[in-house]
């Protein structure tokens, strides 16, 4: 497997070159005997799809966005809110064996001219894969800077050809009670449902994500396909999607239904709207250092220039 390092990451944040070269050598050394045994392990290889090709989007590099801190892969892949795999942020990595991300199908239905039922590896070929470094802001007042791999959700929307009735898009995660009943928990009513307004879904920033750090998504990060809407709190970005539905009415989204006073449907990052559990004025930026750095939270998580127009005329204090 070829691991491509995104050139946008400052070298200081990455594996030291000497170590990287050694790893490359070790990988090659390990691969040689494996290649000889290739016929024997062919089925296993078929299941773990190769890392697809991708290109960094120059508008979303560390430099272009002026991001100072970069979150190392180990931290990002070991600290996840993915309640299907457990409620502690270390659980998803520990329980990543609960399901296999391939083979995987995604159904696109509802108010569309062309309903789709795609294998995730075909879905992934719908548009050229790009890498974009986004800041992820969790509602729990911490953030990470992460290089995602995928393409704008709008590519899928266009392919499905929503009808004039479609006003919202609903994103449905797999149901753990069905996928792994023996390991399921009851921390939330399943399946997890999230949603966007149609114009939000069409916004180029909204991304359908298949990989991270130059590789396919690890299970704990929402493999094999997830949403990333970087101007919204992380919970808006559903993981391990099995269905995308186009609706006329606003979908009933999980956290909003459970605790409407705490989690709004829009959930746009907004330092001026305090959450009952966390002041949202600042955040812990989880970077390369031992202790996260406290930074002020930006309106729309720093994407105001791009997305503020979507909400003109709305009272963001009330429609949070």
């Amino acid at each position: 497997m070829l691991i491509r390092r995104p050139p946008s990451i400052p070298p200081s944040e990455l594996t030291p070159p000497a170590l990287y070269k050694r790893r490359k050598f070790l990988r090659a050394a390990l691969a040689a005997p494996l290649a000889l045994a290739a016929p024997a392990i062919a089925p296993a290889k078929a299941q773990a799809a190769a890392t697809p090709d991708y290109a960094p989007n120059p508008a979303f590099t560390m430099e272009a966005r002026g991001y100072g801190t970069f979150t190392p892969k180990e931290k990002m892949a070991g600290y996840n809110n993915f309640y299907e795999l457990g409620t502690d942020k270390r659980d998803p990595a520990a329980n990543s064996h609960f399901y296999r991300a391939r083979p995987w199908r995604v159904a696109v239905s509802g108010e569309v001219a062309e309903p789709l039922d795609l294998d995730v590896d075909d879905l992934l070929k719908l548009a050229p894969l790009e890498e974009r470094v986004y800041r992820l802001r969790c509602v729990e007042a911490w953030s990470m800077v992460i290089p995602w791999m995928g393409f704008s959700l709008s590519a899928l929307v266009k392919k499905a050809q929503p009808t004039g009735k479609a006003k919202f898009v609903e994103f449905i995660t797999f149901n753990p009670d069905e996928l792994f009943p023996e390991n399921s928990n009851s921390s939330l009513p399943w399946p997890y449902v999230e949603g966007l307004r149609m114009d939000e879904a069409m916004h180029p920033l909204a991304m359908l994500v298949f990989g991270v750090y130059g590789e396919l998504l690890p299970t704990q990060c929402g493999a094999p396909v997830r949403l990333v809407a970087p101007w919204k709190y992380g919970f808006k970005s559903g993981k391990a999607l099995v269905a995308i539905r186009f609706l006329e009415k606003q979908p009933a989204t999980t956290w909003n239904v459970l605790q409407p006073g705490e989690y709004g449907f829009y959930a746009n990052v907004n330092p001026n709207v305090s959450h009952p559990r966390w002041s949202q004025a600042s955040e812990r930026a989880i970077g390369g250092g031992f202790l996260p750095e406290r930074r002020k939270t930006d309106m729309f998580n720093g994407y105001a220039e791009e997305v503020a127009g979507l909400y003109s005329g709305m009272d963001l204090q009330k429609q949070f």
Binding site: G78, F290, P292
Partner: peptide
């Protein structure tokens, strides 16, 4: 502790 992404939490 050293292995934690968010030692504060």
């Amino acid at each position: 502790l050293p292995a934690q992404a968010d030692p504060v939490e």
